[in-house]
Design a protein around this nucleic acid. Structure first.
Lengths: 194, 194, 194, 194
DNA sequence: GATGAATGAGCTTTCATTCAT
DNA sequence: GATGAATGAAAGCTCATTCAT
């Protein structure tokens, strides 16, 4: 019953609770209370606590991917595409603070400690960046010797680390727009063909 | 006695165990066994499980800071300083894989969920980068409009995200040297005054 | 409706499930699935899980009693009656393995832990044996000093313990016929008037 | 620490609690309270709830076997040996009512539902009976055509079923001595060579 | 200082039972 | 009558922490 209202209610509750206390400190009963269902109901929709986290990842990142791709498709200039990606990423973080916190904190842990789990959705997200680089290299805007594999991680890492600032401290020193532009500028300048 | 043999044995054991299973899954008895002391002995040197993690952070990052500062002091060119920082960071990650894993995975969590804790040592580490930028701006090598506060986090985030590759996958596609140089090149190009 | 189709379907399903996993490990949902009804339907026919077990006992043992009595009524020689009882008991065990397992395993438990429950049907079954002894004593075939109350339990106990062999191990060393005859022979010889 | 006081205290507590409520209804916390230890302490001595039951079986049956063998060794007449076995069995049941209840009720269940477990101790106990029969056949007292394998189970089954009377009803109609003698008399008469 | 047996609070998960449809 | 989603009480087990030795 994937389309059920309860499934989503639990996911949204879990985002709130995981953001507040972290995955390990979160109690099933907290999520149940937040979702206004009984503890047992959660197990009608998920196999266990960890399954909630994984489902959350898959579903929420999927949504984000769709949105970013739509935003980027409207552009042809790879430089602008990078800026849009950065902007979109940071905006998403601000709009969905709680989700962003969970992704920031728990996604990495699960990548490491849950060996069986390959976070393909996350990889797909980051690969949007390398796709942009390839485009730029083809059109001669970006340097051919730039490694998209290194670039995509560097660019994502830069945005991710900046997001942490927003999540940890409640008072952002720099505006989202300013930050996104600043970061993408550095990276664009860094791989521009001269 | 801070310099006690046991104190350090426990820290080193904790690094191993935390790297292997993560902080939350790690058992005190595992650390005790790894350190070849009794469970109770740990509580003669640390207040609780979390105190081990914090002590570990403080002490190990302190060591790293000393080393990086020494390496950078030998240079005067801020461009080379950035490259050295990147190189040093990635080399450290490779040499101290287990420590790097713990810092990667647990440092962020603790920043968030342990509100009382200000990770000053970590801030000090990242501030080395902004110090370099300031130097470069003063000497006219780097653009004046570059924001050191944004730059330092972007640069660190890029390196940090690359490190995750090393930690998660056992086969690095790019050499440390190549990667460090590539990343610092992008960033140097990105803030160079033209 | 006691004779309802569903009532019996549930009983038969319960026999299967209880035999497979035991009463305590059996889930209502397992019985429901086996009976091809909804979980809730079971509660239209039975008060609770334990009520299924008790109903099962009463109804199934009643059937057995009718059959044994019919088989014995054809005989007049109390010695042959005993042999027929033994034969009938072991044959029933083999034909209704699952039912036999449930009676073997759960009947005793329920006698003990469900204080309110007097298993009158079971007593009626065992009393068939003492009825035979009385007959034999009246006709002078069996010793007058034999205690029917002790004999009936011993005889039943002997058959019951042998049944366990069939239920636990899948390969019977002795044939049913041989075993029934052997056991009844020992007991007949044991109370024969000389 | 098999010889520890606590190990035995927990076993004895478990006998009491299992006898009172049955294995499945027994709570670990009940056993802990009865043994005057903390819940967690039980897990220092046993792997899980079921491990307590198995340990209980092995250890207590071992004790009984030693005692019966000692009692029987003093005799040479196989007829008397059988009577002694019956007497010893029923006396044991009366003296250790709670243990007897647990063995009666739970030993069979575990034989069936815990496939991996071979109750060798129990088999050893019942084999004492077949050993006696063999002796009697060798010395020409018992019929050669008697099957020790069937006899041992029948004899044990008879005693076992009688024990249930003692356990279920609190008022024994027949004395232990009378019952033991009556049952063994039937069986002795039943296999005597004439 | 060092030990490790003992503690007991705490949490995930199960499942008999209910009840709105 | 029939359904099965929802409930929530209940309990086995873990493990950080303590403290008598």
């Amino acid at each position: 019953m994937r389309t059920s209202d309860k499934h989503n209610k639990i996911i949204q509750a879990a985002i709130k609770v995981f953001a507040r206390t972290g995955f390990f400190n979160a109690r099933i009963s907290d999520i149940a209370k937040e979702a206004q269902v009984a503890d047992g109901t959660i197990y009608l929709y998920f196999n266990n606590k960890y399954d909630i986290l994984l489902s959350l990842f898959e579903e929420e990142i999927s949504k984000i991917i769709v949105q970013v791709k739509q935003a980027i498709e409207k552009e042809t200039d790879p430089r602008k595409m990078l800026t849009i990606f950065a902007l979109h990423h940071l905006k998403m973080v601000e709009k969905n603070q709680e989700l962003a916190e969970v992704l920031q904190m728990e996604l990495r842990q699960s990548n490491k400690f849950m060996k069986e789990y390959r976070n393909t959705k996350f990889i797909e997200y980051v690969d949007i960046i390398s796709y942009i680089i390839h485009k730029g290299q083809e059109s001669g805007v970006f340097r051919k010797d730039a490694q998209p594999g290194i670039f995509k991680r560097s660019f994502f890492g830069a945005l991710d680390e900046m997001s942490r600032l927003w999540i940890l401290t409640t008072d952002p020193h720099y505006s989202i727009d300013e930050t996104a532009r600043h970061i993408s500028d550095i990276f664009i300048e860094g791989i521009l063909k001269r």
